[in-house]
Structures are given as C-alpha cells and as structure tokens.
Design a protein around this nucleic acid. Structure first.
Length: 739
DNA sequence: GGTTGGAAACTTTTT
DNA sequence: GTTTCCAACC
C-alpha cells in the first residue's frame, strides 16, 4: 500500500510521468493540487534532490498551501523544494543579479498607486493631455506590452507613422526611464526583467536551469506570454516541464493571460504528453451538470466533459428578488438558517459576486444579523493611506532613490514644504543629474530655496538617523521610533475621529506584521519586509480555521471550494458585466464571463444558489436588468425556482441573434412583476431573552428589550438601545445576546 | 503654503 | 453613492 494507490489511473499517470513536457488538463475539482503534491513526492522518491524541484503558483496562498501539503506528505527535505509565486521567484532572482541590468539590488517594487504617480509625471513631461489619454489607459497599454514582452523601442517601430501609437510608445519609454531613475520595478517588470536577465546572461540562466530540473506550473491557463517565456527558458535545458491548467477556468485575459499558452502547448512542445483529469471529486452531480451546460456555450475550448460519482444532490436554487436589499436578506437568511439548524458553520458559506461594489449590502446585512464575515478584496490593506505613508518612510530609508516614496512623505506630517520648493529641488536634481533625495540632502546649495532649505533639513536628518540604525536595530523598534519622531501617530490621535482611530489600528497591525516577519524570516531585512509586503494579495490572508462567512469576487474564488455557494447579481449588465457586452470584442469577452460563471458554479460542493434582483442601484442610478443569460443556459431540470413553477412554453433557440430576440420576447411575457420572495426564516423555538431583559447587539451595543411580537416566520423584537435608539429587529437576524 | 468646498469622475476583474 | 481632484480662498 503506497500513497499513490489512492490516485485514479489518470492522476497516477500524471504523477509517474516525470521526464519531458507534460500538459495536465485538469477540470475543476479533479484533484490537480493532489497530483502536483504526489508528483513532488514521487520525484523525491526517485532520488531527485528536492533542491532541483520547483513549483510555481500565482498566489502566495496557493504556494503556502502547496508547501504545507508537501511537508505533510513527504516530511523531510520538503523545505528545499522551491514553491513560490511567479513574482516572488523573479524577485528572488533579481535581488541577486539585477546588477547585470544596471539596477541596484535594493530596487523598489511599485504598486498600482505608485505607477499612477509615475504616469502622471510622465504625462506632464510629455505634455500629454490626461483628459484625452487617461493615466489608467496608458498604464494598461504599457502593461499589455510588457505581458507580450514588447519593449518601448519595438513598440515605437511597430507604430510606424501612426502618431497616436507613437505617442503611446513615447510614454512607455519615458515611463521606463522614470522607473529606472527611481531604481524601481513595477509588477510586470519583475517578469520582464528576469526574462531579460536570462537572455542577456546565459551563464545565469544555465545556473538556474541546472537548479530547476523539474518544473511544475499551477493555474497554467493564467500565464501570459512573458511568464511562458520565463518558464520555457528555465525548462529549456532539461525540458521537464509539467503544466497544470484548465482552459475553461481562464479568467485573466484582461490582465494579459494568453489562453494560447494552453491551447498551443502541444505545438510548442510536440513531444508533450497530454493527460486529462475529468473526474470531479468536489461537487454534486447537479452542480457539475449545471457547470457543464453553461460552459458548453463557449467555442474554442478543449473538449472535455467532467463527470462525478458523487450524489445527485439538491437542485440549483434560483431566486429573483425585487431588489438588491432583499437579495442580500434572502442569502443571509439562508445562511443563518443553516447555522441555526446545525447543518453547517459560517465558514462553509461563500457569497460570490462580480464586482467589489456589490459587497456593501451583504456587509451591512451581515453586521445587522450579527454574523461574522470576512471580506476578501476591495482596498488592499497595504494600499491604505496610512500604511502607504509608513511604508514610504521605510522605503526612503531603504532605497533613497525611490523618488515616489520620498515625495510622498517629505511633507507628511506637514513640514511646510510645498510644491514650489519641491519643483526647485527637482530642477536642481535634474540639472546636476543627481537623485531627488540626494538633492534634498544638499538643500543648502540649491539657489532660491531661501528659508525652505531649513525645513528640509530635519527630514533628511531623520532619514539619516534611521539609516544609521538600520541593521543593528530591530525593524519594529525602528518603525516605532520613526512614528514617534515624525509625530505621525500623535497627529492621528489629535484628530480623534473614528477614521483616525481606524488608521492607528491599521498602523498597529502593520507593526505586528513587521514583528511577525522579523520572527519568521531567517535573515530579516528592511528590503525583505518591503518586498514581502509588495507581493501580497488579499486572498493570501484567508485562513481556513476561522469561522467566517466569506465575501469575495468570483475572480478571487478561483482555486477555492465551499459546501455552500451563493452567486449574487445574476443579471445582464452585472454578470455578464456591462463592460464585456459593450467592449471591443463582445464575443470573446462574453466567453470569459462565461468561464467566470463556470468557475463560480464549480466552487460549490453541496449546494448552489443563484440570485438576481429586478432592480438595483448601480453608480447611483437605479437599473432594471434582465436575468443573466447564464441562468437561461441552465436547463430547467437542474433548476429550482423557489415556490413558483413556471411553464416554459417556448423552446430555446440555439443561434445568437435569435436568442437575443427570444430573450426580449420572453421578458415581455413577464407581464406581472415578480412577487417578493418572502424571507423563509424558520422561527426559533424560543428566545433566551424576554421583555425587560438587557441584551447586546453587535452593531447597536447594549439595550433593553421593550417588546417581543410573535410573527409568522420569526419573532420581532423591539429594543431600546442605550446609544442607537429604538429598533425593531428580527430575532433570527439580530443575534441578540442576553446580558 | 495650507485649507476648504464643490465639482467631476468613476467601478470589472489583480500579482 | 463615493472618492478624488482642483480652484479659490485664507
């Protein structure tokens, strides 16, 4: 009996095929991570040094999980296996060798905010009207170019005489020049520069080729051209490249993912072995069939059909609500019922939606109902103002050449240094060809500065003091001292608002993160911390052990699974999104939306509920959207539409144009508006409190129960809160605690 | 040089 | 509905 006996024949074949290129087409829930882990174990069993094995993922979370599971399976030696994300792999390589490309090894990593700041400056320099060309647009053009490994010069050549394209190429060139001046790389550069390094320095490439003799790439369908180039270079010598992906789950095309990497793998590697994993171990048959029916509507995919031995399970529930409020209430009512009936825990539920903006209503209702939840996505912790401020200080201390960081904090807190002064310093720096920070240090020599020079002094002095301490003072100490010296916390304290309190809490959290880093890292350095921070995604913070309802976008949900999944906002214009329907390439973008829908459906293990709202506020406007076409693509036999059983007199036409007409006519048949779906909350058998008792509510605080009315479905409790006044609450939502 | 108010823009998805 | 930006004031 060996660990490999638990694998099915295809999985086993994938595990045992170690030499040469291998493409594993792994459907949703087909155990691909399991295969990868067993493959690593098998390789080590064959006497291959863990040092020569590499597994690449997209998120830190996936990497961490894989590392954990490899440890559990093989134990000793597993630590030497290189398990990392694309980006952190590249950073580790570049931190050693980027000198060959003329950068300093202390380079900064710019996030989207920083990029925008650079872009603004670029536009100013090139006299680009940002009303005509938005920074965001320019950034996306540049990002796409980098995904495709197109250099500014190549872009300029390709532009020919088209002045618009020439302008874009010009902006790209200037943008890169600015980054270089700041000794900074953006996310895309991490990949691009590593490829460049390998192409320029064959000896470095060969060293890594010898190191990574066995390579595995997870979520291969999301790789872009640059990433593909990177792995092909690395695998170029030994060709032991194993990629695992599912073309049906490719949802990052907008970010440059090249679906042809998977569709054409066999063309690039003609000797590639292709193995399909089609047995699903995750979902019920109903869920899986539904997913299959939806994705079937896409063309241009590798033919496969997932099957399962699991039970049929319950039908997929679809509910159309009058508005988004009731949609949220319905879902949350469903969750609390599950928990109350001890059918499931909070953590077994995830609410998925298309856009982050949709999360708010759910948050509000969850707070009101006293249900613990975790929101994934939205504003990244490290993108918050106060966090960016502190990090900018640390970056300045770490790498004085990072002008964006220096400019960010030079006047935070206020030091009376304004735009005029900064411009003069900037001019001086440009004139003498020195860095911005270096110019600040020489403030006294700059003409026309006058008294302002004296204001700059304390800033540079502070930075210098901190730089001196770097290396022999713990980072936590250094940061605390920095906050003390700058008076940053004091200023927030003085404000005394809820917002400023929140900011202080965030800074405290940052300090604990620094402490955690110092404890866990073998050799903690400031650069190391900043780097780790630059590469975290929100999804990485998801902990399996905590009992929370999870709220996140469909994109974030990829790779995860939950017993109960709710997909909200199943409406035309929301999902599929308005943008995809009106984009340049509606057909193609719609297919990506459909894949996203497929990803969402296949996250569910036991039950899936799809919801839509007749009426919804979008961008401050009330919209009336039709039910999503994805719902219509699900045959009735798998759907359960609540109490209403509606006859379907019309056959669904198959071609596109007809379908639209059919949708419209179908809509027009819906003469009377849908009745509001009543909240099916089962009444609790009894309440632990009665009128006159003191109770506590998670949001409103403490209060006194005035009155309890027994309704048909739930108890309605009237409470006079000490601070929030009198409220009427439903007992099953309010989760009042007797004091 | 800093503060404030009001208008404009914005929301698809993220390492 | 919310955030960001800019111009006019202090």
């Amino acid at each position: 009996m060996s660990i490999y006996d638990s694998l099915n024949p295809e999985q086993k074949e994938a595990v045992l095929h170690t030499e040469g290129p291998l493409l594993i087409l792994a459907g949703a829930g087909s155990g691909k991570t399991r295969v990868l882990i067993h493959r690593i174990a098998w390789l080590m069993e064959q006497g291959i040094s863990p040092w020569n094995i590499m597994a690449i993922t997209f998120t830190n979370k996936a990497a961490g999980e894989m590392r954990q599971r490899v440890n559990n399976l093989v134990g000793q030696g597993a630590d030497s296996v290189w398990v990392a994300t694309f980006h952190s792999t590249c950073v580790r390589i570049l931190r050693r060798y980027i000198g060959h490309l003329g950068f300093d090894t202390t380079f900064s990593i710019y996030d989207t905010d920083d990029q925008k700041t650079v872009m603004k400056d670029v536009c100013k320099r090139l006299n680009i009207d940002t009303k005509v060309y938005k920074e965001r647009y320019l950034m996306s053009v540049i990002s796409r170019a980098k995904d495709e490994l197109v250099s500014p010069m190549e872009m300029a050549i390709a532009a020919g005489t088209d002045w618009q394209k020439k302008l874009l190429a010009e902006a790209y060139k200037e943008y890169q020049a600015q980054l270089r001046r700041n000794n900074a790389l953006d996310f895309d550069d991490l990949i691009v520069k590593t490829v460049e390094l390998f192409q320029n320095c064959p000896e470095i490439l060969e060293a890594y080729q010898d190191r990574f003799r066995y390579m595995m790439v997870d979520e291969y369908q999301d790789t872009n051209t640059a990433q593909f180039k990177l792995i092909s270079l690395l695998a170029g010598k030994y060709r032991n490249l194993c990629v695992v992906g599912d073309d049906d789950q490719s949802i990052y095309k907008f970010r440059g993912a090249n679906i042809y990497n998977i569709l054409n793998f066999e063309k690039v590697f003609p000797d590639a072995r292709v193995i399909k994993l089609e047995q699903n171990y995750r979902s019920t048959r109903n869920i899986l069939n539904t997913a299959n029916e939806v994705i079937r509507n896409n063309c241009g995919r590798k033919e496969k059909r997932l099957w399962t031995e699991n039970d049929e399970g319950n039908p997929i529930a679809f509910r159309l609500l009058p508005n988004a409020f009731e949609e949220a209430e319905l879902i949350i009512g469903d969750i609390s019922r599950h928990v109350r009936d001890r059918k499931a825990d909070y953590q077994d539920h995830a609410i998925l939606y298309r856009t982050n903006a949709q999360s708010r209503l759910f948050e509000e209702k969850l707070i009101l109902a006293g249900i613990p939840y975790k929101l994934i996505g939205g504003v990244n912790f490290y993108a918050r103002r106060e966090i960016k401020d502190v990090l900018a200080y640390l970056k300045t201390i770490d790498n004085g050449r990072d002008e964006i960081a220096v400019r960010r904090v030079i006047n935070v807190p206020k030091r009376g240094i304004g735009a005029t002064t900064l411009n003069r310093v900037g001019d001086y720096a440009a004139a003498y060809g020195i860095g911005f920070y270096d110019a600040l240090v020489r403030a006294e020599e700059i003409p026309n500065l006058g008294r302002s020079a004296g204001k700059i002094r304390p800033f540079t002095a502070l930075i210098e003091t901190m730089q001196d301490k770097l290396g022999h003072t713990p980072l936590v100490e250094l940061t605390k001292e920095l906050l003390e010296e700058t008076g940053y916390i004091k200023e927030l304290e003085a404000e005394g608002t809820d917002e400023s309190k929140g900011r202080i809490e965030n800074i405290d959290e940052l300090i604990s993160k620094i402490a955690a880093y110092e404890e866990s890292a073998e050799e903690p350095t400031l650069s190391g911390f900043l780097e780790e921070v630059a590469l975290v995604a929100d999804i990485d913070s998801l902990e399996e052990s905590s009992n929370y309802v999870i709220l996140m976008t469909l994109h974030s949900a990829k790779g995860l699974e939950f017993p109960y999944i709710y997909m909200a906002g199943m409406e035309e214009g929301v999902f599929p999104s308005y943008m995809s329907l009106n984009g340049e390439n509606p057909e193609e973008e719609l297919e990506e939306e459909r894949r996203l829908c497929y990803v969402g459906i296949t996250r569910a293990k036991k039950e899936l509920m799809l919801t839509a709202a007749r009426q919804r506020m979008l961008r401050g406007q009330t919209m009336y959207n039709a039910v999503s076409r994805f719902i219509r693509e699900i045959p009735d036999e798998y759907l359960e539409r609540g109490n209403k059983t509606r006859s379907r007199s019309m056959e669904k036409p198959s071609n596109g144009a007809m379908q639209d007409a059919w949708i419209q006519s179908k809509e027009s048949f819906r003469v009377k508006p849908y009745e509001s779906q009543t909240l099916t909350v089962n009444k609790a058998s009894g309440l632990e409190y009665a009128a006159g008792d003191r109770v506590r509510h998670i949001k409103f605080g403490d209060g006194t129960v005035l009155d309890i009315t027994e309704g048909k479905k739930d108890y309605e409790v009237k409470v006079e809160f000490d601070t929030a006044g009198i409220k009427r609450l439903f007992a099953s939502f309010a989760k009042l605690k007797k004091l």
